[in-house]
Amino acid sequence: MSKQFQFKLVLLGESAVGKSSLVLRFVKDQFDDYRESTIGAAFLTQTVTLDDKTTVKFEIWDTAGQERYKSLAPMYYRNANCAVVVYDITQSASLEKARTWIRELQRQADPSIVIALCGNKLDLSARRQVSQEEAKKYADEEGLMWTETSAKTGEGVNEIFTAIAQKLPLTAPSANRAGASRTGPGARAGVDLNKQAAAPGQPEACNC
């Protein structure tokens, strides 16, 4: 008998870093070269299978990154179990914006929220402005999960959502699973997705 857990996930980050593309890749395994900007927020769901008995359904709120929508964000992260804060590795300013969001989450969101910092547009690493070292160091300091992704190629996308699912507290009795001890409720230790064991059925995460 399988258990399904349901978690609310919010995507935050500067406009045009690829939040909607990340979700589109995760949910639909698609990529649009021409993606319309998000107006307000979009809602999607996707289920991650952790093992034979456990699935995690993400209820994803994909927020608009434009500054004028900032005041709406608390509505979406207020009850979120997890947040993916996205930046664009080719725009160093977007990491600053991500820091701002993370500070706001740490102040305003549920204290147990699982936050993942996600550097998107890995396919454009030739134009990289944000080094992996810099981002990872920051993530470690703040106790965030961190990885880099490419919504365009799909690299790292499923991995980060799976890693979040594994880190979320699955409190029901049958939720115990291999590796669960690593991610106790409320754990805020940084997780380097590069080194994390791959989820069942998922290819090993690799940012190289």
């Binding site: 406009s15 045009a16 070269d33 021409y34 900007s37 990154g65």
Partner: peptide, 27 residues
């Protein structure tokens, strides 16, 4: 959409939708 884009993407050899849309997003 291209009209919306701001200065940075224009003239950039890799100017593509990513920047275009990115600048469209700018508030």
């Amino acid at each position: 959409t291209a009209v919306c884009q701001a200065e940075k993407s224009a003239g950039n050899g890799v100017a593509n939708q990513r920047q275009i849309s990115s600048h469209c997003h700018k508030g």
